[in-house]
Design a protein around this nucleic acid. Sequence first.
RNA 1: GCGAUCGUAGCUCAGUUGGUUAGAGCGCCGGUUUGUGGUACCGGAGGUCGGGGGUUCGAACCCCCUCGAUCGCCCCA
Length: 476
Amino acid sequence: MAIETPKAIRGTQDIFGAEAEAFAHVVETFERVRKLYRFRRAEMPVFEKTAVFSRSLGETTDVVSKEMYSFDDRGGESLTLRPEFTAGLARAFLTNGWQQHAPLKVATHGPLFRYERPQKGRYRQFHQLDAEIIGAAEPQADVELLVMADQLLHELGISDGVTLMLNTLGDAQSREAWRAALVEYFRAHAGSLSEDSQDRLERNPLRILDSKDPRDKPFTADAPKIDDFLSGEAQDFFGQVTAGLKAAGVDYVRAPALVRGLDYYRHTAFEFVTDRLGAQGTVLGGGRYDGLIETLGGAHTPAVGWAAGIERLAMLVADASIAREPEALVILPDGPSAILKASALAAYIRRRIPQLIKKIDRDRWNRDFAIDDASIDGTFADNDEMFGFAGGVELSFKHNQRKQFDKAKRDRASVIVTVRDDGDPSSRTMLVSSHRTQKDLALGALGMHSLWSLIEIELGESEYSLARDTRIILPE
RNA sequence: GCGAUCGUAGCUCAGUUGGUUAGAGCGCCGGUUUGUGGUACCGGAGGUCGGGGGUUCGAACCCCCUCGAUCGCCCCA
């Protein structure tokens, strides 16, 4: 009887290789930018009491009413796997006395769970980056978050084709008045609306504006505009947000129909949208949620935040082939007698490389900046590559020599070093086809190839003497 | 939750009026050759044709159910 291999759960993914590199690249870039903007790091549990989400998101929202992974634990308590970050973060803010840090700039990332129909860029276990400012009513907080999001996309190299869609929902009064006007307006045309929109009329009338159904289009154009219902304060607030964006040089498009799905949003609402991911075009979205903390029993605490889908960002990164698997220097023991020597060499190089990189960076720094301050403007761009080193040393231990060599090439080795035992007159080093392009080399990129040159010099006449008999095999 | 397309070796796929032991490339394992490893060649392992049921003398190919993926709707990151 054959043993059946259990299958992965629907909507989950196993990420590997280039995709995993892209995923990690997104997270690493986020961490760097988050520190740059001085957002503090937080980690929260993956599950909470169900009430944390049902109360803050709104009972009637799709997320709460049909997409949550909820279950009773052994004590009979209803728990839920987090479908989003904000509610759990708000709960943590209240239960840990984080109020003392307000306005608190926090960031986190990790897995979230939603029972939805899987599609490209949409999974049941998915991952988000998240940034929030809790306890700040100032529009400058909204601006800070948006500028940070914009920089993140730029640093990921995927800002082309991504547009910031911006809207305001006004304060609670403005939003309510607008909502009432919309209901009245659409109710007059209810008979002509799509079934979906007739349903939305009761549950979430704002969303009718977003409808893609051609039957709704004629009515959405003439629907009441939020701008006509904004209070003076709400107008002023939005004006300060847009002025802040202009001052920081962040482009946006006013999207009066943009409405976020969750009940807690007020004032600023925004999405960064791309047309390259089909129906899942929203890559980062968020807004202000001044009422949320109160729904969890806290004092009135204004807050803003956004979340971004790591999978979606990673797909854009992969399309732009920005993230590469690290290049390799491969060390092959040439026969069993050379195994120990090869591992000694690998250990030496691996320990030495971080110091060499520091030394190179320091030398370049001195060369570029110490000589002439006036040159600073021009040197930053030139030096982008020097911080991008991603290389590794692979010590091969497969027994078949031929396979070792073939595998090294498949793994895109920049340098292959074979090691033979002492006393073997044919001891030699081989440099095999550098896979870096001419352009990379011309830029003086810090690759495995150039690092190996330094190591060769260091080794000199040592016991390895690997630089002798060097042979270079040119790329095809 | 609704609609559409699809599901054949590890990967990419071929395989129609349903008919003998289901194929290719790449990968994997072994070997030969090449003046020392980028080549070429030989051989081998590996497939419940997503799963279950049905129609039929006989189905990878037809029908039903089911699971999964993809695309769209809904919703959202």
